[in-house]
Write a protein that binds this DNA or RNA. Structure first.
Lengths: 262, 262
DNA sequence: TCAAAAGTGTTCGATATACACCCATGC
DNA sequence: GCATGGGTGTATATCGAACACTTTTGA
């Protein structure tokens, strides 16, 4: 019965396209999220394991999925990340729509969409999101299905669809985001972080060496980066102080600059 | 016959949604373009006149339209602007996907979509583009249908769909674009422009007063802004020099800074 | 006492800001 | 000659870049 209806639907669509000469796309829409983490002086990205559902020989993809009827794209991205990680209200930034007609036309990709969503998805465009996340955050899978893993940025596998392209585009987007709102950078650091972790993150984001002494001065001027009494334990060298980010001070300071825009 | 097929299609979709409990959206996709021009120290936006097709009592909308089967969104935006203005390869910057489930749910909007595109468009998401254009450019309508007009930014009418929102979001995007690539600013000025036109544009983009003397120094340092011998004719005060933008020099200068990214 | 990373200050140049007056032209 | 906008220079403050050594700690 189901199969019959599906065939019917496909048939109807084909006929209609022919009769009406309508060439407008009628498409499904997905979101794909590039979630960055930072650890050991390098970026990682959160990927979904496909396991039995592997796409061709590819076993990892970006977190993402089709959007529902009642949702807009922002809501869909939040939902998908919530289902996968248990984190509500993740901080997200939409950065581009990927819509090439053949971005989902590889036979492996099509087969997978047939199984994972529904058959006869003839076209799929996606809206991509960037997110920054503490890599040591406990993630719990809500939907109970897919499992996730962090994968180092420079060890990414080949992924299905245009996910490798999406990741590439996302990286430059971090810098734009940080420039617009420095606070998001602290989403990548642990609650308590050392100066050198912060320094390494800065170098990674800007992809260049930054003089530590100059950077110290900069940080000392950030009233919202406050030194804690606590120090690094069990290191065989001088222990570093921990710092924390104080978002209330940050907001106060920032509000002194923001003029309501016309 | 056509009507029968349409009803059938709608019917099939309803049944399917019910049987499969699929709640994924299957949607049409449009692009909407916010084309800025600059004249007389203020911005204008290129709008399409609807005339007999007016939407409710609204007669102006952003240039835009549904995208075709074989297109991605960039191509669609270029096509639509070409059809309306005769300008090929307009410089475009995608800036956001607007996808609220009820962005196209006003009865006027639905009626209009039924007539303009095809009936039963139950959902429509749009990808918005920013473009900058010399306001004195001769525009010729290729499709031969819709006519366009410039409308001052602070005199915009209420428009259909969420077009007013889109315009609002686009304005801040100009600044980002200019910061990323100053050359686009000259898309807003005539080929020959005076210093004070350039100055006024700068003030408009950054939405604040900028000291002309300091700005002079800045401009004098821009090797790619070259002074012409020609001067403003017929003015009852000291005539201003004309300047032009030299994109070859610009590229040379810029290439000295661009390091190929990892 | 050594290795390993933490932490600190000064100088210099470039850039942005603030500010006031003379110049050329048409009427 | 006067009204109108065109065009210029100087002084100061701020920010980022360059640069080398001492301190703390565990092993």
């Amino acid at each position: 019965m189901l199969f019959l209806l599906l065939s019917l639907r496909r048939f109807v669509r084909i006929i209609l396209n022919d009769v009406m000469k309508t060439k407008f796309i009628h498409t499904y829409v997905s979101v794909d999220c590039v979630v960055f983490g930072f650890d050991n002086n390098q970026f990682s990205i959160l990927l979904v394991q496909l396991d039995k559902e592997r796409i061709g020989n590819k076993n990892l993809k970006l977190p993402g999925g089709l959007i529902y009827d009642h949702e807009d794209v922002d809501m869909a991205a939040l939902r998908i990340l919530y289902e996968l990680t248990g984190i509500k209200r993740m901080n997200l930034r939409q950065f581009r729509c990927f819509s090439s007609p053949d971005r989902a036309s590889h036979p492996d990709d099509i087969r997978w969409m047939d199984r994972a969503y529904q058959p006869n998805i003839d076209r799929l465009i996606t809206v991509s999101y960037l997110s920054l996340c503490k890599i040591d955050k406990k993630l719990k899978n809500i939907s109970g299905f897919k499992s996730t893993q962090w994968c180092k940025l420079n060890e990414l596998p080949v992924m299905p669809f245009d996910h490798n392209q999406i990741v590439e585009a996302s990286f430059l987007e971090i810098r734009r985001w940080v420039e617009h709102d420095l606070a998001v950078m602290f989403d990548l650091l642990p609650h308590k972080f050392t100066f050198s972790q912060f320094h390494a993150l800065y170098e990674a984001v800007y992809n260049r060496k930054i003089d530590p002494r100059n950077f110290y001065k900069k940080v000392k001027n950030m009233a919202y980066v406050v030194q804690l009494d606590e120090k690094q334990p069990n290191v065989r060298h001088r222990a570093a102080h921990y710092y924390k980010f104080d978002k209330h001070i940050y907001k106060m300071v920032k509000n002194q600059f923001v003029i309501l825009n016309s």
